[in-house]
Amino acid sequence: MAQAKAKDIAQEPTATPSLLRILTLVTVLGVVVALVFALVIAGTDIEQGEVQRIFYVHMPAFFGAFVAFGATVLGGVMYLWKRDPKWDRLAVAGVEVGFALALINLITGSIWARPIWNTWWTWDPRLTSEAIMVLTYAAYMMLRAGIDNVDTRRRFASVYGILAFATVLLVLFIIRVRDDTIHPTVVGNSPQNAQGSFAATSGVVGALMVGLLVWGLIVPVTLMWYRIRLENMLDWVNRKKMEVLSA
C-alpha cells in the first residue's frame, strides 16, 4: 500500500508542451482538410444524395472511439499492473473522448438513416449493440463518480474499462454472428431493379482515408492528451488541498 501511496503523485502542471501545440495545429488543419475532402472533393453519391457525405465522419468516428476505448483497456491493464495513476488518467481520457466520438457516430448514423431508411431509429442488431456500448461507457463514468476513495476508484474503473471493451467488440463483430443487420456497406445497389450496381462515386476512398486518419486517430489522440493534462491538474489540485488540510 505504501508503494501505491508513493506513486499517487500528480506531476506539477506544466505549460502546454510545444509538441502538443504542434499537434493541436495539425489537428485543426486535419479537420479542415478532412471536411474539404468530405464536402468538396468527394463526388455526390447519386443514389443517396448529399447526406451520404456524413458517412465520412460517421464511420471514422467509430474508429476514433475504438482507438480511445482501446487506450482505456491499455490504461486499465497498465494501472492494475504498475499502480501508476498516469495510466488511470489515460483510461479516463479514453472513455471521455471515446464517448463523445461514439455519440457522434450514433447520432450522425441516425440522421443519415432518416432520409435513407425513412426512420431515425431501427432496432437493428448493429444499432442496438452500438447504443448499448455508449450506455456501458456512461455506466463507467457513473461508476467513477460513485466512489470517493481515489485508489478504489482507479482500481474499479480499470477493471470496468477492461470489461466494457467487450461491448465494443460486440458492435464490431455482431454483423458476423447476426447477419440480419441492415447496416450498409459503402456502395449501395440501385434503387430500381437495375441489373447491376453503380460505379463507385469518385473520391470516396480518398475522403474515407483522410477521414479515418483525422477523426479516427489525430482527433482522439489530441483530445486525450488534453484530457490527460486536465486529469493530472485535477489530481494535483486535490493533492495540494489534502496537504493544506493535513497541515
Binding site: T44, D45, I46, E47, Q48, G49, E50, V51, R53, I54, V57, H58, A61, I104, I107, T108, I111, W112, R114, P115
Partner: peptide, 15 residues
C-alpha cells in the same frame, strides 16, 4: 438523386 442536404447540415451541426 434525392435532395437531402439539410440532413447533412444537421449532422455536421451535431458533430
Amino acid at each position: 438523386t434525392t435532395s437531402n442536404v439539410e440532413y447533412l447540415y444537421l449532422g455536421l451541426a451535431v458533430v
